[in-house]
Design a protein around this nucleic acid. Structure first.
Length: 117
DNA sequence: GTTTTGACATTGA
DNA sequence: GTCAATGCCAAAA
C-alpha cells in the first residue's frame, strides 16, 4: 500500500466512487459533492472529478455527474460537454438552461420522501 | 525530485 | 443574491 485513505486504498476509494455513480438511476443526476459525501469524503469533489477522468469503464455513467449548481462540469473538450447534455436529455433529464440541469426535479436522492407516498 | 494544473465544494464578504 | 478566496488530493510536466 503506497497510500492510505483513512484505511482505504486508492483502488478501493475509486471503486467506491464508481459504485456510487453506477447507482445513479437514468433520468437523474448527482453532484460531485453528493458522491464525495456518500463516499465518506466531504469536500473532496475534486477527487471525484479525477476519478471520473481516470475512468475508462463505459459502464460508468459519468455523464450523470454534474456540479453542485446543477451545471455540467466543464471538460477540456467543450464538444464532449455538449454531447453530455444531449445524452442526459435522452435519458429524460430536464434542462433549465443550455448547460444547467434542473436539480429540483432531476436531483438524485437516495430516498425521495414524497415520491412514493 | 518539485511545481503546476485540474470533470469541484465550501465559506466569507 | 453574486463574486472571491481557500482547501482537498492526485496526475502530469
Amino acid at each position: 500500500m503506497s497510500k492510505d485513505y483513512d484505511g482505504l486504498s486508492e483502488a478501493e476509494l475509486y471503486k467506491l466512487f464508481y459504485d456510487i455513480i453506477r447507482d445513479i438511476p437514468a433520468g437523474k443526476v448527482a453532484s460531485y459533492g453528493q458522491i464525495a459525501l456518500l463516499a465518506d469524503r466531504p469536500r473532496d469533489g475534486r477527487y471525484v472529478g479525477h476519478a471520473l477522468h481516470a475512468v475508462t469503464d463505459p459502464s460508468i455513467p459519468w455523464q450523470r455527474v454534474v456540479m453542485a449548481s446543477g451545471e455540467i462540469a466543464a471538460r477540456s473538450n467543450p464538444g464532449e460537454r455538449e454531447r453530455q447534455q444531449k445524452l442526459l436529455k435522452q435519458e429524460g433529464v430536464e434542462f433549465i438552461a443550455d448547460f444547467q440541469v434542473d436539480m429540483q426535479r432531476c436531483g438524485w436522492q437516495k430516498m425521495p420522501p414524497d415520491l412514493f407516498g
